[in-house]
Amino acid sequence: MNLIITSIQFFKKSYYELTKVTWLGKKEVGGIAIIVITFVIIMSVFVSVVDLFLGAVVSIIL
C-alpha cells in the first residue's frame, strides 16, 4: 500500500515540475534541427576524408 501512495506522490510531483518547463517553439526546434543535421553532415564528410587518408597511408606502409 505504501508503494502505491509513494508512486502517486512521485507522479504528482513530476507533473508539477513538468508544468514549470519552458518548451521550445516550432521555429526554435526547426532551427536547432537544421544546425544538428548540418553538423552531422560536416562531421561525416570529415571522418570519411580522414578515413580515406589514413587508409591510403596504411596501404603505402604495408
Rank of each mutant, 00 (worst) to 15 (best):
N2M: 10
L3G: 04
L3F: 07
I4D: 15
I4H: 10
S7F: 11
I8N: 03
I8R: 02
I8Q: 06
I8Y: 02
I8W: 02
F10K: 15
F11P: 05
K12G: 00
K12H: 03
K12M: 09
K13S: 14
K13D: 15
S14A: 13
S14W: 12
Y15I: 14
Y15L: 15
Y16L: 13
Y16P: 04
E17K: 15
L18P: 01
L18G: 02
T19P: 00
T19M: 05
T19W: 06
T19V: 05
K20W: 03
V21H: 02
T22I: 14
T22C: 02
W23T: 12
W23A: 11
L24W: 03
L24E: 08
K26N: 09
K27Y: 06
K27E: 12
K27H: 11
K27T: 14
E28L: 01
G30L: 10
G30D: 09
G31Y: 07
I32G: 04
I32H: 04
I34D: 05
I34L: 08
I35E: 06
I35R: 09
V36T: 11
V36M: 04
I37V: 12
T38W: 00
F39N: 09
V40C: 08
V40H: 01
I41N: 05
I42N: 04
I42G: 00
S44W: 10
V45N: 03
V45A: 12
V45T: 11
V45E: 05
F46Q: 03
F46W: 11
V47I: 14
S48R: 09
V49E: 09
V49Q: 08
V49N: 04
V50W: 06
D51A: 12
D51T: 15
L52F: 12
L54P: 03
L54H: 05
L54V: 13
L54A: 09
G55K: 11
G55S: 12
A56L: 07
A56Y: 09
A56T: 12
V57A: 06
V57E: 03
V57Q: 01
V57H: 02
V57N: 07
V57W: 00
V58S: 09
V58R: 10
V58L: 03
S59I: 08
L62F: 12
